[in-house]
Design a protein around this nucleic acid. Sequence first.
DNA 1: AGCTTATAGAAAATGTTTTTCTATAAGGCG
DNA 2: CGCCTTATAGAAAAACATTTTCTATAAGCT
Lengths: 139, 139
Amino acid sequence: MDLETVKSKLHAMNFRLTQERELVLRTLMESGEMFTAMQLYDRVKEQYNKVGLTTVYRLFEVLTKLRLVTPFLIDGEIYYTFCQGGHHHHFVCLDCHRVKNIYGCEMDTRDFADLGKVEYHRMDLFGHCENCQGSVQPC
Amino acid sequence: MDLETVKSKLHAMNFRLTQERELVLRTLMESGEMFTAMQLYDRVKEQYNKVGLTTVYRLFEVLTKLRLVTPFLIDGEIYYTFCQGGHHHHFVCLDCHRVKNIYGCEMDTRDFADLGKVEYHRMDLFGHCENCQGSVQPC
DNA sequence: AGCTTATAGAAAATGTTTTTCTATAAGGCG
DNA sequence: CGCCTTATAGAAAAACATTTTCTATAAGCT
Ligand SMILES: [Mn+2]
Ligand SMILES: [Mn+2]
Ligand SMILES: [Zn+2]
Ligand SMILES: [Zn+2]
């Protein structure tokens, strides 16, 4: 998905795409990584200009409403990754925090009807991506 | 798993099973639910005596180290559920927050070798358990 | 260009989690 | 048992994370 599409989704919900939001969104979308609010704030600062931390928090809030972001809990911290399109699963690199989408879910939720009514499910794989294999782990 | 087993696991790591920990642990284990620290603190208070909130936080910390607890991120909040035994998946009721274990994982992580080296994975189903189906949703 | 209203960002407020500190008791050992 | 060592309880403070408030600004519309 490109920035223009996100823009229309924002507009459809009466949100605006400000210059600040565009900087943050670009950083998030182009990285393929997941970030805590503070991490994304720092990344934006180093790559572009400075934006307010509040702006990052508010963007995560908005993107969550639009379901354009998926949260991950890792080591007690909440990370967000840009995420859109149909249902899919994830591979998360524990080293570089890059996220890869896995399409083609074969699960049939009817198999679990005895447990209750399944609304949705998630599957996340965690490991070390090709880039990070063999390389020294970040401290 | 019963309390005695947890006790030995604690002792094996040089942790102690105090009266306060036992109260909190009982509440957690017997409920089958997942709790935020504050929720478990409140539940212990109403069912038994009062314990310190710090004690609950510290117990979650210890149980996390022993891998006797699994964290869930729901609506921006971190919940913990008592969780032990071999690899399995979860069904979480969005209403009552009870958790059911799903054994018999058929996934072969080698199917994803092209993505990187998979260390572990999780799968969580979310929905409404039999008890909560048809009943009025909690506010 | 002009209008309306969502947003930026600094500062304050709020909420959550961790740390500190002292008294207590768990568990080990004789 | 009784004694000893050391992990833990819990209150209070500190640290940290997130949300709210408030005013100026600019996005988007006409
Ligand atoms: Mn995704
Ligand atoms: Mn479990
Ligand atoms: Zn990687
Ligand atoms: Zn339920």
